[in-house]
Amino acid sequence: MAQASDTQATRRRWLLLSPALLILLFAASGPLLIVVIYSFLTPGDYGGVVWKFSTDAWFNVVVERDFFDDTLSFSDAHLSIFWRSVKLSLMTTLVAFIVGFPTAYFIATRPKDKRDIWMLLIMIPFWTNLLIRTFAVMEIIRNEGVVNSLLIGLGIIDQPIQMLFTEFAITLGMFYVYLPLMVLPIYAAMERFDFSLVEAAYDLYASRWRVLRRVIFPIVKPGVIAGSILVFVPSLGAYVTPRVLGGGKQLMLGNLIELQFGQGRNWPLGAALSITLLAIVMVALIVYVRAAGREEMSHG
């Protein structure tokens, strides 16, 4: 309504926004602040916290106090879990790129009316239950699963290969569940790609490989960066996949955090670990925003 003054329009806008903002503040963002507070408290004996200030939790993220003589040393257990989280997430991202890029390219080069169908085929698994998809991977690679049965049946191996509960299993599972997140943004960038540029490059004596590397890849790079972030971030915080496919032996950050709220009974440490994870993710997102912004500037 044109007659509504600016203040009226502003009030109306915030009124419309209030239900969504209240729900999100109450059940998504607000509680994050409490996590920060908890990370500076003392753990209670049976879970929960004692309201006494302590920085122990933050020390414990990377440092271990010896139970007998109080000496400090780097916490090998925590550091190895951090390292595994980062390593497996990077591997997942890399494999997802190697498979996802050609897939996005393949879809983008289909006839226009068929592309949506191909994309739907990518998206259907994504919108189906993550637990079920993880479970599906588990069934395939378990000792009595299809892969081992097949290999034994063919006489290639005598004993089943132990794949389940290994880092390989976790990487495979995360690759499987997050692959669509790699394909989606690369496809979005690729779909707008003008193939007359490729013709121009061939005309100027470029080989297929060089066309891919020098013409196609630089132009769809923002999509690749977006896809990498979209795969890397949830991989780093993954909980279900390492729990099911790692079987409690190969912990990742998400499982370590959960442990503190369960058997570990160290809520402050769990809180500190959560904030650490959040910080790593934020850094990744900032790197992405910067990179995307730069790309936009250089191409805009």
Partner: peptide, 8 residues
Amino acid sequence: PEIVTAVA
């Protein structure tokens, strides 16, 4: 990450 929200 969902785990962070879940913990919170």
